[in-house]
């Protein structure tokens, strides 16, 4: 029902957008919600990592987004997406189309990232600015989930590199590109899913709750 309403009334979609972008975004908004109460194995998670030209969402800009799918416990490199905003700054329509394509790739899947607050702020800003819509997907934050699930390794949030070392993931050195980061996060997600299952945290909903609880608990203590 809400989907149809949004389709008719537009939900703040920018008037200036090309017709194909409007249509694609409306269709994305009308997609039926995906169940977050299925077994992890049947849930399609989208891992996201961003590159920016600075730390402040209102002053700096996104330069790239990498997205990769973890589904049925596996990573399929063929099911990945990369947006290079740095190369498309001049063409506003192209940027809008890239945003619409990103939404289509994500669908209604829950997102996974490291320090969600940072990436989410940039992505939400971008979606608002470029398309005029509020983008509020279910979101999992590995920075808080990892200490909750692997407390025996580290029970406080750490820089990502600390976890890479702890898990002994050998994935090259130096500054990583967003897709390389997404690949690392996707692997950590695979490990988390197995661990979560063992702990009885069997669904995306339960995992999101775990992520929130971990963040609240550790921030207040």
């Amino acid at each position: 029902m809400f989907g149809i309403k949004k389709f008719i009334f537009g939900d703040g979609l920018l008037d200036s957008l090309p017709a194909d972008v409007k249509q694609a975004v409306s269709e994305w908004q009308a997609l039926p919600a995906v169940s977050l109460d299925s077994t992890h194995f049947l849930t399609r998670y989208v891992v996201i990592d961003v590159a920016t030209d600075g730390p402040k969402p209102d002053a700096n800009r996104l330069t790239g987004i990498a997205a990769m799918v973890v589904y049925r416990g596996e990573i399929a490199p063929g099911e990945s997406l990369f947006v290079d905003f740095a190369a498309s700054t001049a063409d506003a329509n192209l940027q809008a189309r890239q945003w619409a394509a990103l939404l289509r790739f994500i669908g209604q899947s829950p997102l996974v990232s490291y320090h969600q607050g940072f990436g989410a702020a940039f992505i939400q800003q971008g979606a608002k600015r470029q398309l005029g819509i509020a983008f509020e997907p279910p979101w999992l934050d590995l920075a808080w989930l990892l200490p909750a699930m692997f407390a025996e390794l580290n029970d406080k949030p750490q820089p990502l590199d600390e976890w890479v070392q702890r898990f002994g993931l050998d994935l090259g050195s130096g500054r990583r590109q967003p897709m390389e980061n997404a690949m690392i996060l996707a692997r950590m997600m695979q490990m988390i899913l197995v661990r979560a299952h063992g702990k009885g945290v069997g669904t995306a909903t339960a995992l999101i709750e775990e992520s929130h609880a971990s963040s609240v608990l550790r921030r207040t203590l």
Binding site: V21, E27, R97, Q98
Partner: peptide, 8 residues
């Protein structure tokens, strides 16, 4: 669905 978005 609009051609352009799917091409992008």
């Amino acid at each position: 669905v609009a051609q352009e978005v799917s091409q992008v």
